[in-house]
Design a protein around this nucleic acid. Sequence first.
DNA 1: GTCTATAATGGGATAGAC
DNA 2: GTCTATCCCATTATAGAC
Lengths: 189, 189
Amino acid sequence: MTAAADVLHRQGVERTTIADIAEAADVPVGNVYYYFKTKDELVQAALATHSEHFAALTAELDELPDPLERLKAMVGTWIDQRDVAARYGCPTGTLAAELDKRADGGIDLEAGEVIKLALNWAERQFRELGRPEPEPADLALTLISGYQGMSLMANALRDPEIMTREGSRLNRWLDALAADRPPAPGRSV
Amino acid sequence: MTAAADVLHRQGVERTTIADIAEAADVPVGNVYYYFKTKDELVQAALATHSEHFAALTAELDELPDPLERLKAMVGTWIDQRDVAARYGCPTGTLAAELDKRADGGIDLEAGEVIKLALNWAERQFRELGRPEPEPADLALTLISGYQGMSLMANALRDPEIMTREGSRLNRWLDALAADRPPAPGRSV
DNA sequence: GTCTATAATGGGATAGAC
DNA sequence: GTCTATCCCATTATAGAC
């Protein structure tokens, strides 16, 4: 599954052969088919890997006491990943874009579910920040959309510095938002 | 070329066969090969079509006297395209993402050139707005990155309303910038 | 220039020995 | 459960008639 997630991220779904994944996992081709009946199942496995990765990351960030610090730490991980983003884009985002080109109603929306995990996590942080306005859901959309945008731009232009520039802007934006928040007693849940 | 650009946008490069393009253009397969020696040449033709499209759009917007109005009109065209963006993403952005998965140093960076056209146009508008700070190039990156982000999110979640929500935010951000208020994307005005 | 038929290749999926 | 050999189909690209 790790090998599948990795190779599918680097080469994309359509340009990845089962042989590629088998080679990366150092097993023969027939062996892959013993565990995954179709190529689509390998894609789903990669998606599940991304979900778990994200869950592990947020579990770690949730240890931080302040939602602002959590959000900025998330932005920090994005900036840290700038080189891989500039070369291959966001693993989930590029996968979603590729799957959405399919006509069949198969797994093409499952990548969206992983992105929703990120949206929901971010929304919780904004809600804890205690800003009723704009809506936490809108702020979450702006943040995750910002990440997807900067990843795609960095990838298209092959320039990791784009992640740094846009990441800093997001951090300044978060700071400005938090500076506006009501005093602690009036903080909503 | 129009048929190629259209089908490649909807199906993606890898899932599109020459037969698909031939059928869309209503010509036999062999005929396509008479004008385009390889599939890659069809992809390049699609990219050229996108460039021309963008050039025609900006030529029209450049008629507007005020750079702020030009920028907001551009955001307006993005919002107008919300349904197609939600289904197939930004034509150039999704193409760039797909081409960047290639290992060969072929046409994989040419989509980036088309995106640079958008960045340069936006940068000119911000420079004309007369704001020295932040850098017009950074503002352009934020704007185009915002468009790519909202397109990908709308596509991944199959929700055109995301284009409306994020598009409105970009418009408020532009207004705030022009009014020389501190830049605060996400802030409702 | 237009079209049909077909060659050549690559890769998803399977059979079956071990 | 592991691995090799192979089937079969889709697709790129070309040959050659008209």
